[in-house]
Simulated scan of single mutants.
Amino acid sequence: MFLTRLVYHSVADFADSSGSASDEMGRILSAGLRNNPPHGLTGVLAVDGDRFLQVMEGSRSAVSSTFRRIAADGAHRALEIVFCGEVDQRCFADWSVAVLREETLPAAEGRAVDYDHITADGLVERARRIRETGLIARRETLNAD
């Protein structure tokens, strides 16, 4: 199996949703927790202000089919793939999906990211640093708003 990593960002767009942004994030997280493990997908989904950042890792076919489903989801617009290619190992082998929210960012982590100029490695490193803090917003905290 070729191990593929896909890194993208998009603008979160919950305007057409009947629920709140937290409800939509809960829906997205639930779908990831349900769909990703059986397909061998791992990664991180971060919410950075009005942006989604996702690092997805798995087989080429699982990453491709999952991204097609994500791209068709109305919760995203202006999707930009920053990197898609083969890698030697996973960055997030022990996460099927995690949601990181801006309020969980450590104080030392920069709040503003220039998404037009950040590299794929920069996005992966940002997700890794946030994940290593252990400040992960899991589904049960998403609905506490």
Rank of each mutant, 00 (worst) to 15 (best):
L3C: 01
T4N: 07
L6W: 14
L6A: 13
V7W: 10
V7P: 07
Y8H: 04
S10N: 09
A12Y: 03
A12M: 15
D13H: 08
F14T: 11
F14V: 11
D16P: 00
D16H: 05
D16Y: 04
S17K: 03
S18F: 05
S18H: 09
S18E: 14
S22R: 12
E24Y: 03
M25F: 15
R27G: 10
I28V: 15
L29Q: 10
L29M: 15
S30C: 08
A31W: 02
G32M: 05
G32F: 07
G32T: 06
L33P: 00
L33D: 06
R34W: 02
N36W: 04
N36I: 04
P37M: 11
P38Y: 13
P38I: 14
G40M: 05
L41R: 05
L41S: 07
L45N: 06
V47H: 14
G49S: 10
R51K: 12
L53D: 06
Q54K: 05
V55S: 09
V55Q: 08
V55C: 15
M56T: 15
S59P: 02
A62Y: 01
V63S: 07
S64M: 12
S64R: 14
S65M: 08
S65E: 15
T66L: 14
F67V: 13
R68F: 09
I70F: 06
A72P: 01
D73Y: 01
G74E: 11
G74L: 10
A75Q: 04
A75P: 00
H76R: 12
H76A: 10
R77T: 10
A78R: 15
L79C: 05
E80G: 00
E80T: 14
I81M: 06
F83M: 02
F83Q: 02
E86P: 01
V87R: 10
R90N: 02
W95R: 01
W95K: 00
S96F: 06
V97F: 11
R101V: 13
R101F: 01
E102M: 11
E102P: 00
E103F: 13
L105D: 03
L105M: 15
L105E: 05
A108F: 02
A108P: 00
E109V: 09
G110S: 12
A112W: 05
D114A: 11
Y115W: 15
D116V: 01
D116Q: 08
H117Y: 01
I118P: 01
I118V: 15
T119C: 10
A120R: 00
A120T: 02
D121H: 01
D121F: 03
D121T: 04
G122P: 09
L123S: 06
V124P: 03
R126H: 05
R129H: 08
R129K: 12
R129D: 06
I130H: 07
R131D: 02
E132V: 00
E132Q: 14
I136Q: 08
I136R: 13
A137D: 11
R139K: 13
R139A: 14
T141G: 08
T141N: 09
N143L: 12
N143W: 07
N143Q: 07
A144Q: 12
